[in-house]
Write a protein that binds this DNA or RNA. Structure first.
Length: 280
DNA sequence: CGCCAGGCTTCTA
DNA sequence: TAGAAGCATGGC
């Protein structure tokens, strides 16, 4: 558990004694695409159908206009605050290289996003850059998402399944539009059911995701890690391949394998910001 | 302007 | 079955 307790101040919810969590490192490390800075020490975004603005002050995390109920049912899980990152990072420190990547951005946590949203976002991410991914995701929500307080919810598979390549054109998502459509249709028809993938055997889950046209091994692993809580999963994109070859030519240390996806997030972020240090 | 982007599908040998 | 080309669009 990475916080001590909560209390309310007016309409805000204050998380006391927050540890192993900083907003820029967690919300801007390439795992989620709907968060943006909102002033000094504050960020805002929409996830799980809720708008949230939050502020980090000292060891307090302030969730503005949030009830204890919403914290307990949405945000505590989304930010994975029940997980003990202190223990995790201490374990990672057994390996000198892994320790270096953790020290570089110690405030990273792996978010527990909605599987359908993660699926769409990482389809969009393929052969794309972060800036444009965010733009496409924003347009996707504005055009097809349910209006909510503060913006738009992520569109449902049913809503997207009713679209066509032509009606998706305003997204300017290029060749990925047909992939989104196929994913939406398979989910809407029940040909792909995401719920069981939280617990299904990993390779079975991966194969199931890869039945979607446009989902390969890397996107499937992103959905498993970021959307389905499968923290043993390591998405191997170009940066991770480079980082692994350079920093861990023998592979990750064995003790890290059960939580390799979390290690991956530190390594990924480190390699993106220290590409000059990666030989090979 | 030209290269590249948290890859995948399709074509080719 | 491996490796390369093509893909839409726009960031830098």
């Amino acid at each position: 558990m990475d916080y001590q307790g909560i209390h309310t101040v007016g309409s805000d919810l204050v998380v006391e004694g927050i540890r192993h969590f900083t907003l820029p490192e967690t919300l801007d490390c390439g795992q989620a695409f709907r968060w943006e800075p909102a002033g000094e020490s504050s960020w805002q975004g929409i996830a799980r159908g809720h708008f949230l603005r939050l502020t980090h002050e000292g060891d307090q995390l302030i969730l503005h206009d949030t009830t204890p109920m919403t914290f307990e049912t949405v945000w505590e899980d989304y930010f994975d605050l029940r997980r003990d990152y202190g223990a995790l990072k201490e374990a990672f420190s057994q390996d000198e290289t892994l320790e270096r990547t953790v020290t570089f951005a110690p405030g990273i946590r792996v978010l527990r996003q909605e599987p359908w949203e993660a699926l769409c976002c990482f389809i969009i991410s393929q052969n794309n850059n972060i800036k444009r991914i965010k733009g496409i995701v924003a347009r996707l929500c504005e055009l097809f998402g349910e209006p909510i307080e503060g913006g738009f919810a992520f569109p449902t598979a049913q809503m997207l399944a009713e679209q066509t390549i032509e009606s998706l054109a305003p997204l300017r998502s290029g060749f990925r539009a047909k992939y989104l459509l196929d994913a939406a249709q398979k989910v809407a028809k029940g040909e792909l059911v995401l719920e069981p993938l939280y617990t299904a055997p990993l390779d079975e889950a991966r194969q199931s995701l890869m039945t979607v046209h446009g989902i390969g091994p890397k996107v499937a692993d992103c959905v498993l890690l970021y959307g389905l809580g499968r923290i043993e999963c390591v998405p191997m994109d170009v940066w991770m391949k480079r980082a692994m070859a350079s920093l861990f030519p023998q592979g990750l240390p064995e003790f890290a394998l059960p939580v390799a996806g979390i290690a991956q997030q530190y390594i990924f972020h480190y390699s993106r910001h220290n590409s000059a240090l990666l030989t090979v």
